[in-house]
Design a protein around this nucleic acid. Structure first.
Lengths: 201, 201
DNA sequence: GGTTTACACTAGCGCTTGCTTGGTTGAACT
DNA sequence: AGTTCAACCAAGCAAGCGCTAGTGTAAACC
């Protein structure tokens, strides 16, 4: 087995695996299918990954790690107002959902297939990401930008955003930027975003 | 095979199957596990269902059918204002998500495991349900209750609601009624619901 | 020049899978 | 009393599953 977790070959294989997992689902994707997609025989696969589970974990880790990095970066770059920060988070979320789409779909649909060990490790990553969201939502609440229960609002917003993987078409006219704008206009009535929307109608 | 689709025995078996599908996922649930849960042998299962796929279709159909019926009933019962109707839909949605939780979780997670035939049939049911939502959202837009793009708003709302199956705890203090209220307060600023929330804070 | 290392191969083991076959049972109906 | 029929069972087939063992090879390193 490959001891270096971050070999470039392994990264490429992880990317291909993500694609197959989305197409077929984790359970229906056989190691033989994975190997064929990678251009090797099924036995060779276990040189790179200890077992099939580890491939799943690698896919999800990759996606979550990227989301976390992107969100942190977006928060550093954006302005300091609550609206700016909320918008930056929504936009970053949608962008990672788009660029790492396969990995995130796998994370959303196949999370329960992880063994307890991998799940514990990845839960920490996910919690770190959600903590960013809750902090930004807290700011927006303190600022009076939005109203309601902290817990409920953050979950409603995450739900609305994550659901986009089911219907969003990257080829369509709407950009992630636009979606972020519309979402915030929907929940924060007295913003510039909302004014823009209401005058458009 | 059982020709009568609606035999009570079959309904009971469908209910049990839904539970197992949620616990294990469709692919990992074997016909032997299903049979054991039902108290019969695996061979006997195929007296009631043509194949494993048909069990999945039965589970999803049951849940979607109930959701549609409940939503229609809720719309008939409620008042005529846009806010009332929006609230009735949200509440009905959350209630069916709670009472038929297993079936809906299966519908959300295992939809892609349906063969094309079953998918076509069930898509119609689902479209009928979503049409109800879009009509109610149209009314709310016309009424000025909410703002934004019809398509986006309905998808954001459905996302927020469906995401609840991931975190909602029926044993907790929050009732479906409360969630519906909070959601509408979040997206429709000038309602009674929103006033209640803002004075509470 | 010899050893190590990364990556791939072939062959197949042991097990589980969805589903079929042929037959039994007991209650309901004629 | 005879017939029908839904419901169940025991046994097992053919295919596919994840994974292992043992080997080959070309490049990299000492």
């Amino acid at each position: 087995m490959n001891v270096v977790n971050e070999s470039p070959r392994r990264k490429e294989l992880t990317r291909l695996a993500a694609q197959l997992f989305v197409q077929e689902g984790f359970d229906r994707t056989t190691v033989r299918m994975l190997a064929q997609e990678m251009g090797i025989k099924s036995g060779s696969l276990f040189h790179h990954f200890r077992d099939k589970q580890e491939i799943l974990a690698a896919v999800i880790e990759e996606g979550t790690q990227n989301a976390l990095t992107l969100a942190r970066h977006a928060l550093e770059q954006c302005g300091g107002s609550a609206e700016d920060r909320l918008h930056a988070m929504a936009r970053a979320h949608l962008e990672t959902l788009l660029t790492d789409r396969n990995a995130h779909v796998v994370a959303l649909y196949e999370w329960r297939r992880l063994d307890s060990e991998a799940r514990a490790h990845l839960s920490h990553l996910r919690d770190a990401y959600e903590a960013l969201w809750e902090a930004v939502i807290d700011e927006a609440l303190d600022d009076g930008l939005i109203r309601g229960d902290r817990f409920l609002v953050s979950r409603f917003v995450m739900g609305a955003l994550n659901w986009t993987v089911r219907w969003y078409d990257p080829e369509g006219p709407r950009k992630p930027e636009d979606l972020a704008h519309e979402l915030i206009a929907m929940i924060a009535p007295s913003t510039q975003a909302a004014q823009a929307v209401s005058t458009k109608v």
